[in-house]
């Protein structure tokens, strides 16, 4: 897999490269999509959505742009060696226990074995607080009840910064794969249906139909 942003070395890729790659995909779509992001991806999504008017954004087990003190303290307590290595630039290593609460062990191990490496700069971005402008679309913040990585307080902080309340769903950190994923998906789709009215993507176009000129 190529590293983000056309970098040929993953170790050089920054979060900005991740945002660039997502926009490159988005610009090939026929209209603005709903952006659904998870974990570190939610930081990419927040940067993206302050610049790009998506239909809506869903941030699952999110990383607040203002930093993750609760998550770091909790991680240092639970896995001091792995978190210290990550701060020094290594990809944070996960066990099945970190990510899943409700999966058969062999299925969980199968998912964990497919996790790739991460850019150290992108990991650092989670630790470095940044101020974001307002997001340009409605946002749903989803927290996982059994998340052992992102602290509940950080999920709350993320939602507060975006002017919303988190919606808590059952499952571990990887809510989109854990045993209860169909329920999580239904919850998200219900919100998207309620939030995104049918019709043109930009709201002004839904206020008044296009002009019909009849210059006779």
């Amino acid at each position: 897999m190529a590293a983000p942003g056309g970098q040929n070395d993953l170790r050089r890729a920054t979060l900005r490269d991740y945002v660039h790659d997502v926009l490159q995909v988005i610009t090939t779509l026929p209209q603005p999509p709903v952006v659904i992001a998870h974990s570190l991806g939610t930081l990419v999504a927040q940067r993206l959505l302050q610049r790009y008017p998506a239909r809506a954004g869903v941030l699952m087990t999110p990383i607040p742009a203002g930093g993750i003190p609760g998550t770091v303290v909790q991680g240092m307590r639970r896995k001091p060696v792995d978190f210290t290595k990550a701060v020094l630039g290594a990809t944070l290593r996960f066990s099945a226990d970190d990510l899943f609460s409700d999966l058969p062990p062999e299925v969980a191990r199968g998912y964990v074995s497919r996790i790739g490496r991460e850019s150290p700069w992108a990991q650092y971005a989670m630790l470095r607080p940044e101020r974001l402008g307002p997001l340009l679309c409605p946002v749903l913040v989803v927290g996982a009840e059994d998340d052992r990585l992102v602290a509940a307080a950080d999920v709350e902080r993320c939602a507060r910064a975006l002017g919303t309340q988190p919606l808590w769903v059952p499952g571990g950190h990887d809510v989109m794969l854990d045993g209860s994923w169909p329920d999580v998906l239904d919850t998200i789709l219900d919100w998207v249906d309620a939030t995104c009215p049918p019709g043109p993507p930009l709201s002004g176009a839904r206020e008044l139909p296009p002009l019909e000129v009849t210059v006779e």
Binding site: G6, H20, L29, P30, Y52, L202, A205
Partner: peptide, 30 residues
């Protein structure tokens, strides 16, 4: 800034590529 040109474009695109880019922008945002 919210609709970057494709990575496949060169550093200095031609007017035809620019036109295709505006077409894509207009289609994307309706």
């Amino acid at each position: 800034p919210d609709f970057p040109m494709p990575d496949s474009y060169p550093d200095y695109p031609s007017h035809r590529q620019v036109k295709a880019y505006f077409d894509a922008y207009a289609a994307h945002f309706g």
